[in-house]
């Protein structure tokens, strides 16, 4: 009873909470404790900061949308559980993003998977070859969507800020250090 009630009330940050009151359509539970957009060139800086804060990489995912590819990085922490998600938008014409292999070697396979399914090129990856698909696979990557089926950011993530956050900003550092799912649990 208590846990089920608490979960929908999970509010990653105050900003969202305010918005939720205005617009009840937003999903109540997101599973994210800190959620931010980043500029591609600042990804490595942010990931280094997460590495220093003892986070581990859960997965690297990608979403194909009108603005381009959104590469999604999920991080979590053993000592103080709380999920951080970094979202990086890159263009469809030139899908390039720095590889985080040097910081998290476990990202190597996740990035190869993204390369397989979306054709996103990770610069600096030591071994960017197909992982799950047949190396002789012809045609476009399988998870690309048709032009007509593409949705844009506002359709997929209504009512939220899409402006990139700087990993140097105090807010980012504070958020990742304090990031925890403890807050929502204690409410019950």
């Amino acid at each position: 009873m208590s846990e089920e009630n608490a979960k929908p009330e999970k509010a990653p940050d105050k900003e969202k909470e305010v918005k939720k009151k205005e617009e009840p359509q937003v999903p109540k539970y997101t599973g994210y404790d800190y959620d931010c957009f980043l500029a591609p060139q600042e990804l490595l800086k942010a990931v280094t900061k997460l590495d220093h804060a003892d986070f581990f990489l859960e997965d690297v995912s990608c979403v194909d949308m009108q603005e381009g590819f959104q590469v999604v990085y999920h991080f979590d922490r053993f000592s103080q559980p709380g999920r951080v998600v970094l979202r990086v938008m890159i263009s469809r014409e030139n899908p390039e993003i720095p590889s985080i292999y040097d910081i998290f070697p476990g990202a190597a396979w996740h990035e190869r998977e993204c390369f397989d399914f979306f054709g996103v090129r990770f610069t600096g990856h030591p071994n960017l070859i197909p992982l799950l698909l047949d190396p002789e696979h012809q045609g476009p990557p399988p998870l690309l969507k048709e032009e007509t089926a593409l949705k844009d950011l506002n359709q997929l993530y209504p009512d939220r800020v899409h402006t990139p956050v700087s990993p140097d900003s105090e807010e980012f550092v504070k958020e990742i250090n304090n990031c925890s799912n403890q807050k929502s649990r204690n409410q019950s």
């Binding site: 359509q25 937003v26 999903p27 539970y29 997101t30 599973g31 994210y32 859960e58 999920h74 979590d76 999920r83 998600v85 359709q155 997929l156 993530y157 209504p158």
Partner: peptide
């Protein structure tokens, strides 16, 4: 038909 948005469940 869930509303638009994303969720991570582990």
């Amino acid at each position: 038909k869930p509303p638009a948005g994303d969720v991570y469940f582990a």
